[in-house]
């Protein structure tokens, strides 16, 4: 098993290097899995938590560098433990306990904000991926400021009006699907 230093790991996450990500999974997942299962979770819970921890770290790296003074393992476990307790606390409605836990784990405010955002955006992205491919493409092109003419050409030489109306319907469908998802209610209350 290849042992990786913190710099390699951080760079691997930043560049989404599949080899490094694979190594991180091989090296660190067993401990995360043990922790989740010991705390009444399933293997699937462990995988979800592990995946989102890596994404939260990536999100942070997009904004600034991460300085890990001890081992990456400890840092990753701290994030995973927080994510797991957060998930459990949501179910039990124990947000106060969660704040105490975050303080105990010394998770900076930044991470907690990122966790909130990541949760919400994960839901949005889940529903976005459930749309038809055409809808996904049209919305992406619109938001990337691709001219409507170009979008119409790429979508099989349709009219610009058709593209506009299609884009509207796609977004409307996406918003409705999100609002109808029971998981969305917890974000609405905030």
């Amino acid at each position: 098993m290849e042992s990786l230093n913190n710099e390699l790991i951080i760079e691997g996450i930043r560049s989404q290097n599949p080899y490094i990500l694979n190594q991180i999974y091989t090296n660190y997942f067993p401990e995360i899995r043990k922790f989740i299962i010991d705390n009444n979770g399933t293997i699937q819970d462990a995988k979800d938590i592990f995946q989102e921890a890596i994404i939260i770290i990536y999100r942070k790296l997009k904004v600034e560098n991460i300085v890990i003074t001890k081992s990456f393992n400890l840092y990753l476990i701290g994030v995973c433990r927080y994510l797991w307790y957060r998930q459990v606390a949501f179910v039990k409605n124990e947000s106060e306990q969660l704040n105490h836990f975050a303080e105990y784990e010394r998770l900076p405010e930044f991470e907690i904000d990122e966790v909130e955002k990541n949760d919400k955006y994960k839901l949005y992205q889940f529903h976005f991926k459930q749309l038809g491919i055409d809808c996904q493409k049209i919305l992406e092109m619109f938001l990337n400021n691709v001219p409507i003419k170009e979008i119409a050409r790429k979508m099989g030489n349709t009219s610009e009006n058709y593209i506009k109306s299609r884009k509207y319907k796609c977004k409307e469908q996406l918003v409705n699907n999100i609002k109808n998802d029971p998981r969305f209610a917890k974000y609405e209350k905030k």
């Binding site: 989404q16 990500l21 999974y25 990536y58 997009k62 991926k129 938001l143 990337n144 977004k171 999100i178």
Partner: peptide, 29 residues
């Protein structure tokens, strides 16, 4: 706010790709 956030989320193709890569790694392990 919801409309804005959804637009931002759609533009995060890098995050969606990373989630996909992690999922591939974990499921094909």
């Amino acid at each position: 706010n919801l409309g804005k956030e959804i637009n931002e989320a759609i533009l995060e193709s890098d995050i969606m790709n990373l989630r996909h890569t992690m999922s591939e790694i974990m499921n094909k392990k």
